[in-house]
Computed example of a mutant assay.
Amino acid sequence: MTDAAAPTRTVVVERELAWPPEKIWRALTQPHLIEEWLMKNDFRPDVGHRFSLRGDWGGVLDCEVLAVDPNRRLAYSWNHAHEDPAFDLQSVVTLTLTPTAAGSLLRVEQSGFRPDQRQAFGGALTGWPRFLDKLDAVVAQQA
């Protein structure tokens, strides 16, 4: 049994990209582009829209759009049901774009990891930098 009141952990990854927020926003919100850098999906940038992210490993993430501030901020739930409910992941991903002299600063924050979710936390720590490498390549192709 897990303690619901236990503090949770957060993964934060920041990346300076050589593109204006509008170009990055396209790749964050258009399903065919999201598929290229993240996962297959049925995303729509509408608050309350429920969608799935389908990983190459066969897993499915159940998500819901929580916030949309075009070219600035996007937030959605990132939930993964596990065979053993003790390992269920219920987290929130927030993507924030800030214009810079060189392009944009993209901040990715995934919050909600319980202390006993070391594997999921470690996966996010290593996964988000790889996803952002792919995102940068996708935006470059669209430029």
Rank of each mutant, 00 (worst) to 15 (best):
V11S: 06
V11Y: 04
V12H: 02
V12G: 07
V13K: 05
R15I: 04
A18Y: 07
P20N: 07
E22A: 15
W25E: 03
L28W: 10
T29M: 11
Q30L: 13
P31C: 06
L33D: 01
L33N: 08
I34M: 08
E35R: 04
E36L: 14
E36A: 14
W37E: 01
M39Q: 07
K40E: 15
D42Q: 13
R44P: 04
R44V: 11
P45Y: 07
V47G: 05
V47Q: 02
H49V: 14
R50H: 11
F51G: 05
F51Y: 13
F51H: 03
S52G: 10
L53F: 11
R54F: 07
R54D: 10
G55W: 04
D56E: 14
V60H: 08
V65D: 09
V65A: 00
L66M: 09
D69E: 15
P70N: 10
N71E: 15
R72H: 13
R72C: 08
L74K: 09
W78Q: 07
N79T: 11
H80Y: 12
E83R: 12
P85S: 10
D88G: 01
S91W: 03
T94R: 02
T94G: 07
L97R: 02
T98F: 09
P99L: 06
P99G: 09
P99M: 08
T100M: 01
T100G: 01
T100K: 02
G103I: 01
S104H: 11
R107F: 02
S111A: 15
R114Q: 15
P115T: 10
R118K: 14
G122T: 06
G123A: 03
L125T: 12
